[in-house]
Design a protein around this nucleic acid. Structure first.
Length: 276
DNA sequence: ATCCAGGCAGATG
DNA sequence: CATCTGCATGGA
């Protein structure tokens, strides 16, 4: 275990970064969060003027949390003085994590037509039963373990109809040379992902954004559909996604994440206000 | 209880 | 090319 300190920055907030919906393996702890990625773990503790990072691999988590990207520059060209600016202020501390491609592929297959609490549970059970025991937590499973588990395993842990997708994608990827994928342009790489059974435009775009660091994408889910229902009436999700990439350009993925977090969280807040 | 969730594949106009 | 339907599960 190593520890390093991180001065507070207006454009990084651990809560917003983990809770915004891009990642499922984390948990709040006393004074901060514990985040898991592949076989690594990091505790992020709020010390007022700084974050204290306690982790097993400093270089891994400096990259994972995307501390080298200049968010002020990215934001500068995107402000619109309207809804987007409001969402950007709300999600001011979001960093797009640099997650593992395999972990994002399987996580977002699980996510389709599903609730976030259930998604977390299914992924957690995948790790508990197929991942390496790291002593206190479990690693995300190796592709070989995912491919050897069988469809019935995924059904047992509650994956529902996605069980067949998970099994088939794992087995297909075992036969796939993914090493050339990083050299592909975004559209070609999306094609490779969508060729996998159970991965459509939305899951592919999430993997591209969170697992392959492609920002010229705009995953369109039920929440984003609600945001743009008036601006793009009766436009199917995949076409809406293409239009939004054209509109927001090479940083469209950041815009998507701000709007998604804003819309989804605002709804929750509104509900609790009504109840209280 | 009924609806719905970070959608997808397959079938049908 | 566009639209429709079934799908497993469980939280709200």
């Amino acid at each position: 275990m190593t520890t390093f300190q991180l001065e507070k920055d207006p454009y990084f907030d651990i809560c917003a970064t983990l809770e915004c919906g891009q990642v499922f393996r984390f948990a709040p702890i006393e004074g901060g969060y514990r985040a898991y990625a592949l076989d690594h773990v990091c505790e992020v503790l709020d010390r007022g003027d700084r974050y204290e990072m306690r982790c097993d691999d400093e270089a891994f988590f400096r990259r994972y949390f995307d501390f080298d990207t200049n968010y002020a520059d990215i934001r500068a060209g995107l402000e619109d003085g309207g809804l987007l600016s409001e969402a950007m202020a709300f999600g001011q501390g979001i960093h797009i994590l640099r997650q593992d491609p395999i972990e994002t592929i399987f996580s977002f297959i699980v996510s389709q037509n599903n609730h976030i609490p259930r998604i977390k549970g299914i992924i957690e059970r995948m790790c508990e039963r197929l991942g390496k025991d790291m002593g206190g937590y479990f690693a995300f499973p190796e592709l070989e373990a995912l491919a050897g588990a069988g469809e019935d395993f995924y059904a047992e842990i509650g994956a529902g109809y996605r069980a067949a997708y998970l099994d088939r994608v794992a087995k297909t990827l075992m036969e796939t040379d993914m090493s050339a994928w990083n050299a592909l342009d975004t559209v070609s790489l999306r094609g490779e992902l969508m060729a996998l059974h159970g991965i459509g435009r939305k899951v592919a775009d999430c993997a591209l954004l969170f697992g392959f660091n492609r920002f010229d994408v705009f995953p369109v889910d039920t929440w984003i559909k609600k945001v743009f229902a008036e601006e793009y009436p009766n436009v199917p999700a995949d076409k809406m996604s293409t239009l939004l990439v054209q509109k927001y350009g090479k940083y469209a993925g950041f815009v998507q994440q701000w709007l998604f977090y804003f819309k989804r969280t605002k709804k929750t807040v509104d509900k609790s206000n009504i109840l209280s």
